[in-house]
C-alpha cells in the first residue's frame, strides 16, 4: 500500500537551526508499522532523515514520536490503523523535550526528571544474612510501574509540562510511586513529604488523563499520581491547597448531595489566606454582574439525607 508521510524536519547546523515540513510517499506492506515506513523513507528516499529505533518490538522505548498529534511508539503502530484509506500521516518529534535533529529528542529532560525522585532503593537496614526479601504479592502490585520502558511518551504529551517545565512529570512520579510502595524501601514518609511539598510535585497534575491514554505499556502514570496523593494525605501531609480542595469537595457532597461551588473556592484558597481570598473577589463581582454567581446558600439535592446515609454506610465499612 502507498503511504504519504508529512515529516517535521529540523537541522541544528543550518543558520542556527532550521525547521521545515517535508512530504514523502513510500510503498509498504499492509502489515507495516509506521516505523517500517520511516525506515523505507530513510533507506530509499532520503538518507538525511534522523530518527532513533532499536528493538522494533516495543521493548527498548527508542522510537517515541508524535503521529497525528499524539505520541506513540512507531514500532507498535500500524500504518493501516491510522491510514485505512491512504490518509496522510503527520510525524513530529516528541513534545516537551529538546529536539536534537529531525525526529530525535534529547533524553536529558527525561532523566533530569527521573533523577529528582531518587529512583533507587533506600532500605532502612542491612539484612544480617543473605538478601533483602519481599513477598510476591507486594511486588506484583508494582508491576504496572515497573513496566515503564522510559520512552518519554507520557512526558511528551503531558499538558502540565507544556506550561511548566518545573513539573516533575508523569514518568518520574510513576517511578517515585514504585519506591514508596516497595516494602523494602525505608524512605517512604520522606519521599511522600517531598513529593507533596515540592513545587512541581504531585498536586500540580491536572488529571487530564493524557499520560494514561498515550502510555504504550499500561503504566497509567496519572493513576499512580492519584495513589501518591492518597498516600501523602494518609501520611499526614495536609498542608496543600490540593488537599483542602479534595477534602472540601468530599464534604460538600456529603452534606448537600451536590457541590457547593462557593464553599469549594473558599476552602481551596484557604479562608484565612487573605491575598488568595482577595484574588477571588473580582471574579465573583464579574459573575455577579452577569447574573451567574452561584448562590452562597448551597443548593441541596432533593435526597441529600439519603446521600449522607450512603457516606455513613461506605465509611463505616472501611473502619
Amino acid at each position: 500500500m502507498q503511504v504519504n508521510l508529512k515529516i517535521k524536519r529540523f537541522d541544528p547546523t543550518d543558520s542556527g537551526g532550521k525547521t521545515w515540513w517535508q512530504e514523502y510517499e513510500v510503498d509498504v506492506h499492509t502489515d507495516s508499522t509506521v516505523l517500517d515506513a520511516l525506515i523505507e523513507v530513510r533507506e530509499q528516499e532520503d538518507g538525511t532523515l534522523a530518527m532513533r529505533c532499536a528493538c522494533r518490538a516495543s521493548i527498548c522505548g527508542s522510537c517515541g514520536m508524535r503521529v497525528n498529534g499524539n505520541a506513540k511508539l512507531v514500532c507498535k503502530t500500524r500504518v493501516e490503523s491510522l491510514s485505512p484509506n491512504g490518509e496522510q500521516l503527520t510525524i513530529e518529534p516528541m513534545g516537551n523535550q529538546h529536539v536534537v535533529r529531525d525526529l530525535v529528542v534529547s533524553l536529558d529532560t527525561f532523566f533530569d526528571q527521573i533523577n529528582r525522585v531518587e529512583p533507587y532503593l533506600q532500605p532502612s537496614f542491612v539484612p544480617e544474612q543473605g538478601e533483602y526479601t519481599a513477598s510476591n504479592e507486594s511486588m506484583e502490585n508494582l508491576v504496572t510501574s515497573m513496566n515503564c520502558i522510559m520512552c518519554g511518551i507520557c512526558v511528551s504529551d503531558c499538558t502540565v509540562l507544556e506550561v511548566d517545565s518545573n513539573f516533575i512529570g508523569p514518568a518520574a512520579l510513576a517511578k517515585a510511586w514504585r519506591f514508596t510502595e516497595d516494602p523494602r524501601d525505608g524512605k517512604r514518609d520522606e519521599r511522600l513529604k517531598a513529593l507533596n511539598d515540592e513545587d512541581g510535585g504531585i498536586w500540580d497534575c491536572t488529571r487530564c488523563l493524557k499520560c494514561v491514554e498515550v502510555c504504550p505499556k499500561g503504566v497509567a502514570p496519572m493513576d499512580r499520581i492519584m495513589e501518591l496523593r492518597e498516600a501523602a494525605i494518609e501520611a499526614g501531609n495536609t498542608n496543600t491547597h490540593g488537599y483542602h480542595h479534595s477534602e472540601s469537595f468530599y464534604n460538600s457532597v456529603k452534606k448537600n448531595g451536590r457541590l457547593d461551588e462557593t464553599r469549594l473556592a473558599i476552602d481551596s484558597a484557604g479562608m484565612f489566606n487573605i491575598p488568595r481570598m482577595l484574588d477571588l473577589v473580582p471574579i465573583g463581582l464579574a459573575a455577579m454582574r452577569k447574573g451567574k454567581l452561584p448562590s452562597p446558600m448551597p443548593h441541596k439535592s432533593e435526597d441529600h439525607k439519603k446521600v449522607r446515609e450512603l457516606y455513613d454506610s461506605v465509611e463505616g465499612e472501611s473502619k
Partner: peptide, 22 residues
C-alpha cells in the same frame, strides 16, 4: 433531581468507592 454529584474525579481522589456508590 434526587441524584448526587458524580464526584468529578476530585471526590474519587479521597475515596474511589464512595464515588462509585454515588
Amino acid at each position: 433531581t434526587k441524584a448526587a454529584c458524580t464526584g468529578a474525579g476530585v471526590l474519587q481522589e479521597k475515596n474511589l468507592k464512595m464515588g462509585d456508590v454515588l
